[in-house]
């Protein structure tokens, strides 16, 4: 009898929880009311998203976009709670609303957009998959037809290398996968596998953290295209619009030549399109559900796209990835970085 009452209690509790329909509101309002952004990032990829053991802070190219969003919404780039996501759980975390947005070196693909219940933001980095080996092991991919390739589980890299091996009809090649890049790197350095395959930018990041980076070689071949972008839950246009234009703002700022340093001079500009862009005129910000001066806040906090890039992948950073002549250059310099107009 006692047990019966307990079960009855549980059943009633369950019904009460089910009762009120969850109100459907845009994530934009949820985040604004909360006053903080919950951002999914990588914690183990130097250069993109990395939890610095000394300072206890997240740093990296992807992390800057979380900061840009917090700056745009709250005027404070530090109002972010970071959630480290490994490759396997990142889409679920966004689907379930555990994080508001993920900037986590994620490739846009048709399958993910269509089948995973997420929508992608504009591309922030054009990458391609490469292969890293120890010096002297191989000079080109062709020599690796019997090799063991290590990579991260649940990534496009895992599928690409499998596709590549199948296309080349390599019978003895093997693919070994681990949960995260740090473990892949560990196994690779110890000699468990002959090659580490991942996006080239990641390989650069991992190589820089190796005890002797000069002994690792990234082969020239690129076996796939990997456009990386942030992503949000599907069917929330207001939230996605707001985030997309925050990303575009960093690119547009670079096109105009607006930087963290010269922002104040631009705020005195009389050119109508600059005044509109910076929110001195018009209602672009309000229309997107953002503060009027969101662009100014973003640039003040993180700078324009070029500045963000240089901080993490510039010549002075340990993860130097040349930008000139690559897809990541501005469109007018032959790249693919281009913002639709702010008007």
């Amino acid at each position: 009898m006692k047990l019966g009452k307990l079960t009855l209690g549980i059943a009633i509790g369950l019904l009460a929880a089910l009762g009120p329909a969850w109100a459907q509101q845009s994530r934009l309002d949820v985040v604004k009311n909360r006053g903080r952004l919950v951002c999914g990032v990588n914690a183990v990829l130097p250069g993109f998203g990395f939890l610095d053991q000394k300072t206890g802070k997240y740093t990296g190219f992807d992390v800057e976009f979380c900061r840009a969003v917090a700056a745009a919404l709250f005027g404070d780039p530090d109002k972010v709670d970071y959630v480290p996501l490994d490759a396997r759980v990142r889409f679920q975390a966004v689907q379930n609303g555990e994080v508001d947005v993920a900037f986590r070196n994620t490739t846009v693909t048709a399958n993910r957009d269509g089948a995973l219940g997420v929508d992608f933001l504009p591309v922030t980095f054009y990458d391609g998959q490469g292969v890293m080996v120890k010096k002297g092991r191989a000079n080109s991919l062709r020599e690796l037809q019997d090799a063991t390739f290590c990579t991260t589980q649940g990534t496009t890299n895992e599928k690409n290398i499998t596709d590549y091996i199948r296309a080349q009809r390599w019978r003895n090649a093997k693919v070994l996968t681990f949960e995260d890049g740090a473990k892949v790197m560990n196994a690779f350095l110890q000699g468990r596998c002959d090659a580490f395959t991942a996006d080239k930018s990641q390989l650069v990041g991992y190589r820089a953290t190796a005890p002797r980076p000069e002994e690792l070689v990234i082969l020239k071949e690129t076996i796939s295209k990997e456009p990386l972008a942030g992503f949000v839950r599907e069917n929330d246009s207001r939230w996605r619009d707001a985030l997309s234009w925050i990303v575009y703002a960093t690119i547009q700022a670079e096109e105009y030549g607006i930087t963290q340093k010269n922002l104040d001079q631009f705020l005195k500009s009389e050119v109508p399109e600059i005044r509109r862009f910076l929110g001195l005129e018009g209602t672009l910000g309000q229309d997107l559900g953002l503060p009027r001066d969101f662009v100014v806040r973003v640039i003040r906090a993180v700078g324009n796209y070029g500045e963000i890039y240089d901080r993490f992948f510039g010549a002075k950073s340990p993860f130097y990835i040349p930008r000139t002549g690559t897809l990541n250059a501005l469109q007018r310099f032959g790249g693919l970085m281009y913002s639709p107009p702010f008007r």
Partner: peptide
């Protein structure tokens, strides 16, 4: 999965991620 062994749970992780049917 922690040591790279493809046991059922590890394969599940890959399947869920590649197919989206978690």
């Amino acid at each position: 999965v922690a040591v790279g062994y493809p046991d059922l749970f590890s394969v599940y992780g890959t399947v869920a991620n590649q197919s989206g049917r978690s």
